[in-house]
Every structure is written in structure tokens, then in C-alpha cells.
Design a binder for these strands. Structure first.
Lengths: 230, 230
DNA sequence: CTGCTTTGTTGATATAAATCAACACCGGCA
DNA sequence: TGCCGGTGTTGATTTATATCAACAAAGCAG
């Protein structure tokens, strides 16, 4: 991994699109305030409610982003994968994290001081326009999640979740995943038991096939139908 | 109303904070591409799925923002009131609206060509930083709505909704509202019948008092407790 | 290897919430 | 005036989903 960015941000082959219009001087500035981190599976990158000092750019692995209630329930609102820069809205509001980030696979990430990024937004119009575009796309995703989770029942929510995993997160079918049944439940707003039951129905109906960590979507059109019709 | 901005944006007393750091020349540019509109109760300002050409700044009245499924259910994701500039994330992604906006009271609004606003974002770092701050606050609201709607049951959702109406939307207690029971239901993710039942329980328990369009919150601490504990 | 913890699975039961149905109330309108 | 469509209200019933309980399977530590 080290050789991929041995010369820092300037030559980093895993650089996020976000930084493509910065000049070498600006990149070096980012580079100087950058810390490279490694996280094991299950390790927390930041926790909801904690102060935010750094912005996180995922360079390898997979990170789940989730909100938690006071109670024991969680809701996964998205994933960050290489090369995603995790947008932290709290940085612009109250300097607190409003969701938690945890590594679901072995993950490496670069941390950059929030001040640096915010400085770029204030001075580089191009950079800030790109930021707004990214945030906008995330907001649209949140709208979709809201309708999905509140206006569909379990099979619809699960179908939608599986389609998203295959097309957006892992971008393959079949796909390998280390997500637990609890994660599946936290993604589709139900209990672990219910998630297992719905998956079983899908398996029995020939919609999907599960072989350990490998999930095949066998009948995408029908799964899309279930997602649409709730 | 007309006298409030007879000289256009430059002297408009209802001007959004967003525009406070623009110089007169820039304001005049905005002014030239501005259309003043009036909407009656129930009239749609824009509809989910339609192309977006203009940005909307509400100068009087109240606007509800909601997402709709293919089915007949809606979910109100927020309100815009004077002087709110409605952020349209689709403008930065696919030039489509991803939620609908409808007047819940007699409403006036200024429409400004999206290009003009996007031009400002590209040229005025200050303006774009403010935009990002606003969008961030909205995103945080969406997170709260997500946990609220998916991890609480009906009394908790309704309590949260009432507190929000009183503290954020109408900013008074008691507050007058022209929202229907269906709107209450669409705000708290339940059916109209369920909304009525929960409100009745709250009334019987002495938490609130409803006199026509006037709603009193009588026991805020207890309502907050219900909101927290689901 | 053995015990132990975590994760996955299944069935029985309880309960939250939607649906269905009926009707009261009100405002506009013929 | 009386009809009529929308809104509000209530009760009975059904259904979706959580909860509870028991156990199997898999990883891990001693």
C-alpha cells in the first residue's frame, strides 16, 4: 500500500476526484497535515457525538456510516469506500459528528485537518462547487432512504438494500460481503430475526443464493419489482 | 408586500442571509433574473421529478417539502418559511427535483434562475461556504428524521413532531397551524387515523390542548420524555 | 480438544399499527 | 334550504413486525 502514495498526496494514485483541480502547492499543504491510519474490522473511526477535528478519506477497505439512538438500535445510512471522502456535516454546524464510522473490513484512510479542507472551500470555488455536488448526491440518497424505510414493508426494504449493495457498494453480482445479519437488519430498518426470515423467503423463492459470504442476485427484475411495490 | 422590496433585491428587507455578502452589482444581477410569485393554499411550487430551472426563496407564508412514493403515501421532510432559500440538491446532480414543494398558507416567493446562484457559488467563496453550512444543517436534520421515523414508535414520533412544529417551524407555544391531520400523519410517518388516535391520547393525558387550529403544548418536559424514549 | 462467546436460525407469541367501515361535521354550492 | 365532497373521528379487525425463547453453528482462547 505504501508505494501507492509514497510521495504523499501529490502523486497519490488513490487520490479522490475532489482534489483533482488543486495545484501541487495546495496538495503539499494538504499532505503536510495528513495522517495515514489503519483500522481493523470493527474498529471505530469516529463516533457520533464526538468533536470532529479531521476529515477522513478512505483509501482501502470499507467503512459503514450509521446513526444510533439512545437505545440499542442502529441505522446504517451509507458506506464509504476507496476513494471516498466522508462528508461530515457537523464540521460546518456544531463541530460534532452526527453519525459514527466503523471499519467493516481492514481499512486504511488518510485524515486531514478539517481546517485545511474548509480553507480550500473558502478559497477554491471549484473545490467548493465539487463539494456541494457531492453533498447534494448524498442528500438525494437520504431522501430515497427515507421513503424506502418509512413507506415500504420488510420485503421491499430488503430488496432495495440488496440491489444497492450489488450495484452501488460492491458493484458486482455476485458479491462478497463481510456484513453480518445484524448489519443487514441495520441497513433495512428491521430486527436481525426479521432480516433472516426475509432473506430465507428470498432464497426459497429463487430470488437470491447465499453461499457463505457470497451473495448472488439471481432474479434482478423480480427483486426490483418487490422493491418498487413495497 | 410590494413596498417591502419595491427596489428589488438591493433594498429588500426580507433578504435571506445567504445574500448578505454580495455587493450591489451582484444583487442587481440576481434581481434581474428574479420573478416574484404568489401561491394559494394547496398550490404546488414544484413537483418531485420535474426539471429544476429556478431556485425558490420564500418571502411570506409557509411551504411544505415532501417526498412521495409511487403509492399514495407522502412524507414531509421539512418546511420553508420566510426567509428560507429552498436548497434543491438535484440542481447539482441531475437537474431534477427530488422532492415536491406545496404552499400550506398563502405564500409569496422569489424565483431566481439556478444558473445565477450556481454562478455565485463558483465565484464567491463566501457564498459557497454559507451554502455548504446550510446544506449541512439540513443533512443533520435528515439524520435526526431518519432515526426518529425508523427507531421510535408512534407516540415518540408524534411528540417529536409537535416539539419541532412549536420550536422550529412556528416558534411559539401555543401555535396556530393550518396543517391537516393528514399532514400530521405525513410528518410522523403514520396513517391519518393513527395520528388522530395518538393526538387524542396526548389530549386525554393533558400533554396538549387543541382548540381548532390552535395547539398548546401543556407539558413540554413530559412530551420530550416521550420523544426520547420512543 | 474443550469450553465459551458470538453469530445465525427457527418457532411461538405478543403487540404495534394499518386497514376497513361507519358516521359526524363543516363549507361551498346548486 | 338541502345536497355533497372533503375532513375529522371512532371502533372492530387484520396484518406486519418485534419480542421472547431455544438451540445450532462457527470461531476463539485456554
Amino acid at each position: 500500500m505504501a508505494n501507492l502514495n509514497s510521495n504523499g498526496c501529490v502523486d497519490c494514485r488513490k487520490r479522490s476526484d475532489m482534489f483533482k483541480n488543486l495545484n501541487p502547492g495546495e496538495l503539499e499543504h494538504v499532505d503536510m497535515c495528513r495522517v495515514k491510519m489503519h483500522y481493523n474490522v470493527g474498529e471505530m473511526i469516529f463516533k457520533q457525538g464526538s468533536p470532529c477535528y479531521d476529515f477522513v478519506c478512505v483509501t482501502s477497505g470499507l467503512v459503514k456510516l450509521y446513526v444510533e439512538n439512545g437505545s440499542d438500535r442502529r441505522l446504517i445510512i451509507g458506506f464509504a469506500k476507496p476513494v471516498d471522502y466522508i462528508f461530515v456535516p457537523g464540521a460546518y454546524v456544531d463541530k460534532r459528528h452526527h453519525f459514527s464510522a466503523m471499519a467493516c473490513e481492514e481499512t486504511t484512510a488518510c485524515l486531514v485537518e478539517a481546517e485545511i479542507i474548509q480553507g480550500l472551500i473558502k478559497t477554491k470555488p471549484d473545490f467548493s462547487y465539487q463539494s456541494i455536488s457531492k453533498i447534494s448526491a448524498q442528500a438525494i440518497n437520504l431522501f430515497e432512504q427515507l421513503t424506502n424505510l418509512t413507506q415500504k414493508q420488510m420485503p421491499g426494504r430488503m430488496a432495495d438494500m440488496l440491489i444497492n449493495l450489488s450495484t452501488k457498494v460492491y458493484e458486482s453480482n455476485p458479491f462478497f460481503t463481510h456484513l453480518s445479519r445484524q448489519d443487514f437488519a441495520d441497513l433495512s430498518g428491521m430486527t436481525k430475526e426479521s432480516a433472516i426470515r426475509v432473506l430465507k423467503i428470498f432464497k426459497d423463492d429463487g430470488l437470491i443464493k447465499i453461499e457463505g459470504d457470497l451473495i448472488h442476485i439471481l432474479d434482478m427484475p423480480r427483486l426490483e419489482g418487490i422493491s418498487r411495490n413495497g
